[in-house]
Design a protein around this nucleic acid. Structure first.
Lengths: 259, 259
DNA sequence: CTGAATGTGATTGATTATGATTATAATAGA
DNA sequence: TCTATTATAATCATAATCAATCACATTCAG
């Protein structure tokens, strides 16, 4: 006869391994009543060791990996790739660049790995982790609090550290670009960090796929004037083209080749 | 007739070996009353040597996790796992803890994911990346320059930011522990960061597998006196035991079970 | 020797783990 | 959609186990 703690350990291990388990199967496996299994499962759920479902339980990661991050990364992935490739063409050997967190700038990481000398400042734990095995690239992380929603480091620590640095080029992502409301992002703290990034760079390059056009989200972090170069993937409205031209923003449109 | 300390040692050894023991069985085995066994078990539990259950006790079990490629290359992986499991038993819900970069502290990340409230400060891009999908854990990264050799963030930015923070417990790894030369690491800048970490924590817990004993590397970052608790995986030399005891360092030895 | 400290076993009311039961909720199939 | 089926939470009873307490014995220091 197992102790309840042992049984719970085994249930946890089982669910981790098989990613799922039914109440019925666990009853048979441990030869206890459904009540007992249900109690075990709710306690394990309380400890964040698995997630209950109707009829059983599933492993925690399978729900954690599912939602925003992966899904978001998958949208317009090809577009983001070609935008990043174009962006990389503006980077020169020996540059000090800043790469914003977010899925739009992520492909840029793969494009810069071949440089033999580069200093990269990034507030993304994902971006920096990907550069950990590229010793020729000097990586500087401005610290801060990790926002799980975007996997970016943000907050006063980030801003303060960033303000001590200066970079040649900053590659910034955005959630919305609008002629009257400028550059916006849903989070106030993140906006503050992006604003700091813009102020610390000689050249500001904004990356955005076509879905971001004429979108306005909560917090503004920059004006059209702040941008030096804007890279996107689809023919944009004439109003943007002329306004960008008038305000001295260079516009790069990279078209996706359909197969 | 055994003395209580002898009996407790044997109970501990028994539980480590068989992974479990019932109060009844221990009563028969040692020919003492249930009260006595229960008292022993409570004391052993207080010393983090086993976990009590209703009806008996079980050994500490580590969560099973699939090591990543990078981790597989590492030596003494099992030892580091059990050391981390022990270390995790000192973490309480709501704590603010600091986790040093390095392969020794890495398994600790898997042990803390189920906490429902925890603030974790870490200077490792790998550690923080692994916590990116655990929203209940507040992650703070003190920034800095990425050292590719250890995948740690180090340097003046790191030290300066760390000095603004204070944590309840710091879990620190080391490359060498020696009675006369204290705690050492091969890199001067990394030593400085570790030194800062120690100074910013109420309690300093050092994790080191047996290979680190009597090793001295280039840069010293702490004295024996700086340590509050030392967790390792093998019977250590008597000189260490007595010196630690004399200097008020609590010593945890976690033995690996050979199958 | 005395008196405090410690270790132990017995007792008892409290707590815990479990399975059965039942009303409610969620799901699947027509 | 509605209905039949299945899963669930909530409750209860019961048996095992536990914590708390006390009494007794042993050890040790003054």
């Amino acid at each position: 006869m197992l102790y309840s703690e042992e049984r719970k350990n085994k249930i946890h291990a089982y669910v981790e391994k098989h990613k799922r388990a039914s109440v019925q199967h666990l009853c048979d496996a441990f030869n206890v009543s459904e009540s007992t299994i249900r109690r075990d499962l709710s306690e394990l759920e309380q400890d964040h060791l698995l997630r209950r479902t109707h009829g059983g339980a599933i492993a925690f990661e399978s729900v954690n990996f599912e939602p925003t991050v992966t899904e978001k990364a998958d949208r317009f992935q090809k577009e983001k790739q070609i935008i990043a490739t174009r962006a990389a063409s503006y980077i020169q050997e020996g540059d000090t660049i800043l790469i914003d967190a977010g899925t739009t700038t992520l492909p840029l990481i793969y494009e810069i790995k071949h440089f033999s000398s580069l200093t990269v400042v990034t507030n993304s734990v994902v971006h920096s982790e990907l550069l950990k095995d590229s010793p020729q690239i000097e990586v500087v992380v401005p610290g801060g609090r990790l926002r799980h929603e975007t996997q970016a480091l943000v907050g006063p620590i980030t801003d303060q550290t960033l303000s001590l640095l200066h970079v040649d080029k900053a590659f910034i992502g955005t959630n919305g670009i609008d002629l009257s409301d400028g550059l916006t992002t849903p989070n106030l703290i993140e906006a503050s960090t992006k604003r700091t990034m813009i102020s610390q760079s000689s050249e500001v390059i904004v990356l955005a796929d076509h879905s971001k056009f004429e979108k306005v989200t909560f917090a503004k972090f920059g004006d059209i004037d702040d941008i030096d170069r804007f890279i996107t993937d689809e023919q944009v409205d004439q109003s943007f083209v002329s306004e960008f031209h008038q305000r001295g923003v260079k516009l790069d449109i990279v078209l996706l080749q359909e197969d």
